[in-house]
Amino acid sequence: MSWAWFHKLGSPKWFFSWSKPWALPLFCFGCLSLLIGLVWGLVFAPADYQQGNSFRIIYIHVPVAMLAQSCYLALGAAGFVFLVWQMKMAPVFIKAMAPIGAVMSLVALVSGAIWGKPTWGTWWVWDARLTSVLVLFFLYMGIIALQNSLEDQVLANKAAAVISVVGLINLPVIKYSVVLLETLHQGPTFTLTKKPEMPAEMWLPLLFAVIGLYCFVAGVVLWRMQSEILMSEHRSSWVKQEVTKHGF
């Protein structure tokens, strides 16, 4: 296997021109798939025999909660890459991804709380799942604050990378908190090894929403990275060309 693509990732110029045509199609496909999943889930899927219609919150809650964790996994990987190889694109990625992850974990917390009220009778409990997702939200906020508050950009990037890597320890806590520990939260809907316990007309729309949100986030993160690259590389002549000649 050739590692050329990995080395090219170190070049902002290469990344910019490679990623430019991908952002919009990914975003549009993501929105479409998300919309199909949500309409299907809200209008056509049957009501749950125990939870009634409040279960329909699953179609937004599960996708954002999955993204909140996946974004962090990507952040941790980028942090590791930066600390080991000092790759230029890694802090750009962290800076672009952290606000998206923060939004995802916030929406997961709020939609979960609203789902909890009719289902458990309470908005919030301090159990392992809910608390560890709250910690995830604070990790994202910490990374954003660090990157924006430290004057020294090199130090800021390093500190953000260190938090990203250290915070990875929180992910298995989130994942296994509903399986191993006492909690009000229901178990996972999708697992790699078993078929979902729901009927297909319930989990298929969820699958559309999950895939849609992944593509939506991919498009958004590419846009954010592209802005970040242009700003940090503004002294290069290719940026000048990009901004003044093309429509961008």
């Binding site: 219609n53 409040s54 606000p99 939004v103 958004v220």
Partner: peptide
């Protein structure tokens, strides 16, 4: 939504607004 309209629609409302804000930003 049975008796759950206020929960379902507030959850979807908040989520939509936040995601739209993210794209706008």
């Amino acid at each position: 939504m049975g008796t759950h309209g206020v929960y379902v629609w507030s959850a979807y409302g908040f989520s939509t607004l936040t995601l739209v804000w993210l794209v706008w930003n």
